[in-house]
Amino acid sequence: MCGIVGLHLRDPDLEPRLGDMLTTMLGEMTDRGSDSAGVAVYGNTDWTPPGSATVTVLADGEDAQVLAARVSARLAAAVSGRELGATVLLSAEVDVDALATAVRTAAPEVVLVGLGTELAVLKGVGLPRELAAGFGLPGVSGWQGVGHTRMATESAVTPAGSHPFSVGPDQCIVHNGSFSNHASVRRAMARRDIHCDTLNDTEVAARFVAEQIALGAGIDEALEEMAGVLDGFYTLLVSTAEEFAVVRDPIACKPAVIAETEQYVAMASEYRAMAHLPGIAGAHLYEPEPGRVYHWHR
């Protein structure tokens, strides 16, 4: 039960302002959920250095440099560590799988909350505006970003339980709503050796979609497959290194508004999150239809 925001930029001139726009969008959704919040930013060269893989972890207060050194020792490659709020970004010039595996083996106690070459996932407990400031979000550039404010329903209020959920390379899901059969789907996935870190229903959806994509599905197919398996109420915003997608359940009670201009595609739970965006007055504004996958390619 939450607020969702997302920005998919078409105009490179806007990229330096991505973090600033996303911060305002996120702050506007505070009333929809003030337990915790999170953002994901694609293509920030500072947070996700080009030519490197980056893994985002929740390290429970462990020093970023110490953690980087531990992973570096395992990887036999240089690893940089950067602390942003409750999260730590670890980057290395290796492939994503190698870095993720090294993190998991060198530091099994940390929770891996994002991985990819372009994606940084930041999350924490507290008010969205304060978290965004703590991450330094207002100043960052990028070409795509999503954010989420959470009013926790049935799982714990922790950084790990916050959205976005990123479980496949450069993939990200944020959700507003409540799945009604996630426990069964979670157990079925566990039998396929896919395990969740949290009891959050959205993580089940994220892992289900990641599994479909790993099996070769496109984002449309993956979401359609998910719609056939996961029951309940949802507005989902799904992003990858190539795509930005929105889907609502067939009943479509949870709010969603899409704004398209030549400069960007924006999506939010409420229009007011987008009211400050440049050129919004001339945007093509609409609410996504039930059960239909909307997606945009880079």
Partner: peptide, 14 residues
């Protein structure tokens, strides 16, 4: 069984 103009606690707050 559901209210016509809100669903869920985030919308109930409004």
């Amino acid at each position: 069984c559901r209210h016509p103009d809100w669903t869920g606690p985030d919308d109930l707050a409004i």
